[in-house]
Amino acid sequence: VTLFVALYDYEARTEDDLSAHKGEKFQILNSSEGDWWEARSLTTGETGYIPSNYVAPV
């Protein structure tokens, strides 16, 4: 399991995006899409895309 933590708040801009709150942890499901990674929030269980530069490894 690849875990990352949000460094900043991010507000989803499309229905495919996933909002993130600073300190929230995510499981990365797919990081092969360049700057946008598919992730699952460990807080809400929701999945979507987050900007890779907004997260760091735990």
Rank of each mutant, 00 (worst) to 15 (best):
V1T: 12
V1M: 13
V1L: 13
V1Y: 14
V1C: 15
T2G: 12
T2I: 14
T2E: 11
T2D: 11
T2R: 12
T2Y: 11
L3D: 05
L3I: 15
L3H: 09
F4H: 06
F4Y: 15
F4A: 09
F4I: 05
V5N: 01
V5F: 10
V5A: 05
V5L: 06
V5Q: 07
V5K: 02
V5C: 07
V5D: 00
V5T: 04
A6N: 00
A6D: 00
A6H: 01
A6C: 09
A6W: 02
A6E: 02
A6Y: 01
A6M: 09
L7D: 00
L7R: 01
L7I: 11
L7F: 02
L7W: 03
L7P: 00
L7T: 04
L7V: 08
L7Q: 04
Y8W: 13
Y8T: 06
Y8S: 07
Y8Q: 08
Y8D: 07
Y8I: 06
Y8F: 11
D9A: 07
D9C: 08
D9V: 04
D9Y: 05
D9I: 03
D9H: 06
D9W: 05
Y10F: 15
Y10P: 00
Y10V: 06
Y10T: 02
E11K: 10
E11F: 11
E11W: 09
E11C: 13
E11L: 10
E11P: 06
A12F: 03
A12V: 04
A12K: 09
A12Q: 06
A12G: 11
A12R: 08
A12D: 02
A12E: 03
A12N: 04
A12Y: 02
R13E: 10
R13G: 08
R13V: 12
R13M: 11
T14R: 14
T14P: 02
T14H: 14
T14L: 08
E15L: 10
E15G: 13
E15R: 10
E15C: 13
E15F: 09
E15V: 11
E15W: 08
D16H: 15
D16N: 15
D16W: 15
D16K: 15
D16M: 14
D16L: 14
D16G: 15
D17P: 00
D17W: 08
D17C: 15
D17Y: 13
D17L: 08
D17H: 15
L18D: 00
L18H: 01
L18M: 11
L18I: 13
L18P: 01
L18A: 01
S19I: 04
S19F: 05
S19Y: 05
S19C: 06
S19P: 11
S19L: 03
S19K: 07
A20E: 02
A20P: 01
A20D: 00
A20W: 06
A20H: 04
A20T: 15
A20Q: 01
A20L: 15
H21Q: 12
H21M: 11
H21Y: 14
H21W: 07
H21R: 14
H21N: 07
H21A: 10
K22L: 06
K22W: 05
G23F: 04
G23L: 02
G23A: 01
G23Y: 05
G23N: 04
G23Q: 02
E24W: 04
E24A: 00
E24I: 02
E24G: 01
E24F: 03
E24Y: 02
K25F: 15
K25Q: 12
K25G: 04
K25C: 12
K25E: 09
F26H: 00
F26R: 00
F26T: 00
F26Y: 04
F26A: 00
F26L: 09
F26V: 04
F26K: 01
F26N: 00
F26P: 01
F26M: 04
Q27V: 15
Q27S: 07
Q27D: 06
Q27L: 14
I28N: 00
I28P: 01
I28Q: 01
I28F: 02
I28C: 05
I28L: 06
I28Y: 02
L29Y: 06
L29F: 08
L29Q: 04
N30S: 11
N30R: 06
N30L: 07
N30D: 12
S31E: 10
S31T: 13
S31W: 13
S31F: 15
S31M: 15
S31D: 13
S31N: 12
S32T: 12
S32M: 13
S32P: 10
S32N: 11
S32F: 09
S32G: 11
S32Y: 09
E33A: 13
E33G: 14
E33W: 12
E33M: 14
G34P: 14
G34D: 12
G34Y: 10
G34I: 10
G34Q: 12
G34E: 12
G34K: 13
D35C: 13
D35I: 09
D35T: 09
D35E: 11
D35F: 12
W36T: 07
W36C: 12
W36M: 14
W36I: 10
W36H: 08
W36S: 07
W37A: 03
W37C: 05
W37Q: 03
W37H: 03
W37K: 01
W37Y: 10
W37P: 00
W37E: 03
W37M: 06
E38A: 06
E38W: 15
E38I: 15
E38P: 04
E38G: 02
E38K: 10
E38S: 06
E38T: 09
A39S: 03
A39C: 09
A39Q: 00
A39N: 01
A39K: 00
R40N: 05
R40I: 13
R40Q: 12
R40W: 07
R40S: 06
R40G: 05
R40H: 07
S41R: 09
S41L: 03
S41Y: 04
S41E: 04
S41C: 09
L42W: 07
L42N: 05
L42C: 15
L42E: 10
L42K: 03
L42I: 09
L42H: 05
T43R: 11
T43P: 01
T43W: 13
T43V: 11
T43A: 12
T43E: 15
T43Q: 09
T44M: 01
T44V: 01
T44R: 03
T44C: 04
T44K: 03
T44D: 03
T44A: 02
G45D: 05
G45N: 07
G45L: 06
G45S: 05
G45V: 02
G45T: 02
G45C: 10
G45A: 04
G45F: 07
E46I: 10
E46C: 14
E46D: 09
E46V: 10
E46Q: 14
T47V: 14
T47S: 09
T47L: 06
T47F: 06
T47D: 03
G48L: 04
G48Y: 05
G48T: 04
G48N: 01
G48H: 02
G48D: 01
Y49I: 08
Y49S: 05
Y49F: 12
Y49M: 14
Y49N: 07
Y49R: 14
I50M: 04
I50S: 02
I50L: 12
I50G: 01
I50R: 00
I50D: 02
I50Y: 01
I50H: 01
I50V: 05
I50K: 02
P51W: 09
P51E: 03
P51H: 10
P51N: 10
P51Y: 08
P51D: 05
P51C: 11
S52N: 05
S52H: 08
S52V: 07
S52R: 11
S52E: 03
S52Y: 08
S52M: 09
S52K: 14
S52A: 13
N53Y: 13
N53H: 13
N53T: 11
Y54N: 08
Y54V: 15
Y54P: 00
Y54E: 02
Y54H: 09
V55C: 06
V55P: 01
V55R: 00
V55H: 02
V55E: 01
V55I: 13
V55M: 13
A56Q: 09
A56C: 12
A56V: 13
A56R: 09
A56L: 07
A56I: 12
P57L: 09
P57G: 04
P57Y: 05
P57S: 06
P57N: 04
P57K: 07
P57T: 05
V58N: 04
V58F: 13
V58T: 07
V58W: 14
V58R: 00
V58D: 09
V58G: 03
V58S: 07
